[in-house]
Design a binder for these strands. Structure first.
Lengths: 198, 198
DNA sequence: CAGGTGATGTCAGTTGCTGACATCACTGAC
DNA sequence: GTCAGTGATGTCAGCAACTGACATCACCTG
């Protein structure tokens, strides 16, 4: 802790501010540099200038650092589904909802890409990602039911929307972000629609 | 270990046979009785009549005990996709493939239901389940591509098939296995088809 | 300036999981 | 028949991921 720089600002918080942000950046850097399994929570804490105990007060476990924003995504999907015109078709509603969510990732595309690479390379992080995506899907399904869409339609449509999101996002990353994410997501959903009609 | 019964059979294996099976049953029982988090791997090993080290030689971690059959499921999906008539529509192919997989669970419906209850109640087990299902989906997508289905169609159709499988299976469990699983899976996929046609 | 509050530090302890090495039951060659 | 080989198991030491209990510290409020 001897290396900690004490920034002197007029109205400073109690300790060094933004401990969460520092831990997130430290974790992503370390995971990218030396791999998730080779990184210890003690290393993350040290690089962020806190103790290991403080890390575990902010994040439930070693993986959760990379999933801090997932709650915001959930809100965005639900909001988008709720805000859709009442007469819009369910599949179109979720498609646009997930396209909106994807668009929100474009603001921090560098972070998103680095994070995606680490997650893709680590089974245990993929697991956690799938859990968050499942929560996203369930939130979308619930929002659809609130619009009056019955089961199993609501669940299946939500599943299709999430699928388009995932496949579109992956294509966006794989292509070096050539086209906007929203286009990729819409293209994936359109492919499914064609297959269902054919 | 004093309670271990030494069964005397004419042609017995080296030690008590079926250690994996005993561990799987012990784990499922304990998880159901007292919860996953409250169960230690030492308890599972003890009930199965082995040491903790032996447990970890058979299973990668505390969760993997309940996912021993996942490889067989993967084979079944792939086989079903490969075996489908060449002129069959991709969505129909995966639908029937996942219906086949679901049907294979009906043979051990009691085990499947108990297992599903434990998994549903435990986030960490749900995580692992999602990873296995993702592998199932990816295998189906690869098999579709081998049939000549292009991307993103193959991935989206596989996603829809897995969704139907999951939703159908859940409905089957929730209904107390009233109708055959295959019917539930087909119904879920039909719902999506209807939605896609608008 | 005396509490009160919230975030942090310290420390001990449990559990999940791994590597290294010994042992045991059976198998096959001789 | 015996004896080395093989594969599954047991034993033990140890690290890393977490958790609970308690102390501390910076700031705020009356």
């Amino acid at each position: 802790m001897s290396g900690t720089v004490i920034t002197r600002l007029s109205r400073m918080a109690r300790w060094e501010p933004d401990a969460r942000g520092r831990m997130t950046r430290a974790a992503l850097d370390l995971y990218a540099e030396q791999g998730f399994e080779q990184t210890t929570t003690a290393q993350i804490a040290e690089r962020a200038g806190v103790t290991e105990r403080t890390y575990f007060r902010h994040f439930a476990d070693k993986r959760e650092v990379l999933f801090d924003g997932s709650h915001r995504l959930e809100e965005r999907v639900v909001d988008a589904v709720v805000a859709a015109p009442v007469d819009a078709a369910p599949l179109a509603v979720v498609g646009e909802a997930f396209a909106t969510v994807a668009a929100s990732l474009e603001e921090r595309r560098e972070f998103a890409a680095r994070r995606a690479a680490v997650v893709a390379a680590t089974p245990r992080l993929r697991e956690r990602e799938l859990l968050k995506l499942a929560a996203l899907r369930d939130a979308a399904a619930a929002a659809l039911r609130a619009r009056g869409v019955p089961e199993p339609d609501a669940s299946m449509v939500a599943e299709a929307g999430l699928g388009a999101f995932r496949i579109g996002f992956d294509a966006w990353i794989a292509s070096g972000q050539a086209r906007p994410v929203t286009d990729e997501v819409r293209a994936a959903l359109a492919a499914l629609r064609d297959q269902a009609r054919g």
